[in-house]
């Protein structure tokens, strides 16, 4: 299981790198879809069907939004060169070297800190939290819901859901405000 998921995450990383280096915006947006749909497969393998249903619909809607935004932008958005290359200098100049070194050093540092941070976790597939055992033992009887995720979402953690609904409401108000061209008379 660990190997299969690692391979799928590898494909997602390739998709993300392609999306960030694509030559035009439409292929970038479609390559971004690789990452989202790969996540759907991971959720199905990790026994999370609720998340898979939500993610596959949300990813489709995100793609529709992104295509709607970039559809009438000009095609020469990304034509300029990535590395500014001065006349008479070699390609490997100081700035190039500094950039590459900085990226590698910081990626290595962050990976080191991350590997320190996940030391408290048990190996993959054996991590059990105290809250989850309590929820699994009592959740079905106390909420009456056969789907434990829904039971937690609306009963034990109702405030979370209320906060989520508030954020969604605020985001919609913000979008309506940003996208209004003429003020109301």
């Amino acid at each position: 299981m660990e190997v299969i998921i690692s391979v799928i995450i590898g494909f997602m990383i390739i998709g993300a790198i392609f999306a960030l280096n694509a030559k035009d915006l439409l292929s970038a947006v479609i390559a971004c879809g690789i990452v989202g749909y790969g996540l759907v497969i991971c959720f199905l393998l990790l026994k999370a069907p609720d998340l898979a249903i939500v993610q596959i619909v949300v990813e489709t809607i995100t793609l529709i939004f992104m295509v709607a935004v970039i559809l009438d932008s000009s095609s020469k958005e990304l034509n300029e060169k990535r590395w500014t290359h001065l006349e008479g200098t070699s390609y490997i100049n100081t700035r190039f070297v500094v950039n590459i070194t900085t990226v590698i050093v910081f990626a290595g540092l962050l990976l080191f800190f991350f590997s320190q941070a996940i030391d408290v976790l048990a190996p993959f597939g054996q991590h059990v939290t105290r809250m989850s055992t309590a929820y699994i033992e009592n959740g079905a009887n106390q909420t009456g819901s056969a789907n434990l995720v829904t039971g937690i979402l609306f009963d034990f953690r109702g405030y979370d859901t209320l906060g989520e609904a508030t954020i969604l409401f605020t985001a919609v108000i913000g979008i309506l405000t940003i996208l209004r061209l003429k003020g109301k008379q």
Partner: peptide, 16 residues
């Protein structure tokens, strides 16, 4: 409350 899904998934499908 019985099968996978719920308000979030169903709402997104209806919006779709």
């Amino acid at each position: 409350h019985l099968t996978p899904g719920g308000g979030f998934a169903g709402g997104a499908i209806i919006a779709g």
